[in-house]
Amino acid sequence: MKMENRQPIIRVRNLVKKFGDFVANDNLSFDVQRGEIFGFLGANGAGKTTAIRILCGLSKPTSGEISVAGFDVYHQTDSIKRNIGYMSQKFSLYEDLTVYENIRFYGGIYGMTFREIKTRAVALIEKLGLTRYRDTLIGSLPLGWKQKLAFSVAIFHQPKIVFLDEPTSGVDPVTRRQFWGLIYEAAHNGITVFVTTHYMDEAEYCDRVSIMVDGRIAALDTPAQLIRTYGTANINDVFIKLARNPGLIPAEVQI
């Protein structure tokens, strides 16, 4: 039992993804442990979204060994999909469905029973303070609420892992803080959180972060350790230091 818990829930070895000549992910290797909040940092175009899409089974890698929740990304994408939640960069709940209808739909297609959907949806809507808006079309809600709802829908079926692709972009600081409250709660309930962001301050909320520069992992450690290693005041400076001095990037990052 103990041994199994030590198994990483996401295991990536030598992941390469090419689009023609362009190498979006250049030989990525890392592990994510169960229950961890794992941050994937990088500038726009660093290859974060490409990597997250591969891990979710939305895109096939060019090469590399990747397993998610114990399943292989080449052949077992359906099993992976049953065990993960995903929130994409683009808001993708149905704007022409109400809050409740969206929750019911996603609960339903993940195979939850009607009773389960009903009781948990009521609890969720109440927790988010949306009781009054239960039957409001999502399209008419403010962005911050939508993002919180999208996250809650992504973990509604209690997946093992939830992938969040820049979940807080375009959201005000107060809502961002609330959003991270939801992420902590999910992690507390045993859901592994894999989150990409380009807000460096958010990195400090993560258990471990990997910093991506030009399709490669430039550094991977706990935020505190990264700050110590690079002798900077915060993660933001670590990132700038790495981005400006490619020489600092080790050939092989210790996992």
Binding site: C56, L58, S88, K90, S92, L93, I109
Partner: peptide, 14 residues
Amino acid sequence: ELGTIEQINVTPIR
């Protein structure tokens, strides 16, 4: 175009 199909594609829908 709305991107909702991507959300569908990460679910186990056949």
